[in-house]
Nucleic acid binder design. Structure first.
Lengths: 228, 228
DNA sequence: ATTTTGGTTTTGACTAACCAAAATTTAATG
DNA sequence: CATTAAATTTTGGTTAGTCAAAACCAAAAT
């Protein structure tokens, strides 16, 4: 039997939750519940059921993480979500700050047929509008390595690859200051005490943002503009 | 509170069910239940609830029909459904025989924003791929009058306007023999006893179909090819 | 070693939507 | 007019998903 959309949402939330914490670490039930907007007890009940089905590895009082089967399922949900987001931006002309919520609903009802057609129309893309990687139809994530503005080298040019927060307000801020994926910039300095990071864009303009924001912007070393 | 997708499906089924029976007539619960694929008792319970909410006019043992409020809601569901079908055919290149089921799911989750955008991309169309009229955003149906191959004049050219059966097999048959909306043809004769209707296409080819099929093809008098 | 605290699990209860089968009403037929 | 068939409604029960609040556990603080 195919998973209900509730199950899909749990798997997705567990994936996203565990992915941003030390490797192999389980996701505390409270975090999961908060991410899904349910009370903790509800999450516990549901996760126990998921464990029964072999989709997650659950240890009471210690948290939950995906099994191999659960990971594949989560990847397929993410695949649908991200292809839909890209489709809405590229084909339908919506803003990248308004497609997340829309995709949240559509991801549970689109047939494989339709997803495949979108994939084709988009030219089999690797990443969505926020730079998030799009798993393939087998549920495998493309390889990707990058750091954030908090951890990358200072004084060397980097290219934004990904924004790891879908909140509309944050996305509009990112867009306004030219921090979207593909844009090039450089970390000038980090000020621990001020909790801030100073950046300079390619056109030389300066910008200082908080560390909270900085850690949501992923980058990779710019290709040495190897044309010489 | 917005209606659940179950409520939307009931309203849609009641609209479609009542529309193909004598005017003002109520739809028997058994028919409704069959259309929705539930047992009669389930339909009764749900319809009573809908009557409570003022969306339908229900008379025990006599059937159900939409109230004004229910009709508007049903029209909006149909609007979404039909715009989606047209979008899938025109923009995404799916076959007209495979879009119905897809739209059945999508109609419940697309935002007004997205529906409006599709409407715009499609040039504010009046009918969907099957010729079914698309209500406007206020829930009003466009005017339309037509007859079927069972009732139209014989010996005069008519244009197909609409196919009133979404079943994939039937749609493929219609496509194969060129009976899709826009095509011109003529009823040569009706044979009561044989339960059949003979047609001739513009290219002169003959075709005989059963009355069941004939009544699912709506037509209107062809414009006298007024070019003189 | 005990208390506090914060997170977690359990319990009991609720809602929407459904089915199966019994009870009822209407309509049809002898 | 009585009977029976067909359709409809009722009744009782199920499942998925949820919440509120009570009970519980573990780790830190006393």
């Amino acid at each position: 039997m195919l998973p209900s959309s509730t199950v899909e949402n749990y798997l997705k939330a567990i994936y996203l939750g565990t992915s941003q914490r030390p490797d192999g670490d389980r996701l505390p039930m409270g975090h999961l519940a908060a991410a899904l907007g349910v009370v903790p007890g509800t999450a516990t009940t549901m996760v126990k059921a998921l464990a029964e089905s072999g989709l997650v590895d659950y240890e009471p009082y210690n948290g939950v993480r995906l099994s191999a089967a659960g990971l594949t399922l989560a990847a397929l949900v993410l695949r649908r979500h991200r292809l839909i987001e890209l489709f809405l931006v590229r084909v339908m002309g919506l803003g990248w700050d308004e497609v997340h919520d829309e995709a949240e609903h559509l991801e549970h009802v689109m047939s494989d047929r339709l997803i495949a057609r979108m994939d084709e129309m988009l030219g089999f893309p690797q990443v969505d509008p926020h730079g998030d990687p799009i798993p393939n139809a087998a549920g495998e994530f493309p390889a990707h390595e990058s750091t954030t503005l908090m951890t990358c080298d200072t004084g060397t040019p980097v290219t934004v690859t990904r924004i790891t927060d879908q909140e509309a307000g944050f996305l509009r801020f990112v867009q306004q200051y030219g921090l979207m994926p593909g844009h090039e910039l450089e970390v000038v300095a980090r000020d621990e005490a001020a909790d801030a990071v100073s950046l300079s864009g390619p056109d030389g303009q300066r910008l200082t943002i908080g560390t909270r924001a900085a850690s949501k912007v992923r980058v990779s070393a710019s290709q040495a503009s190897s044309r010489a």
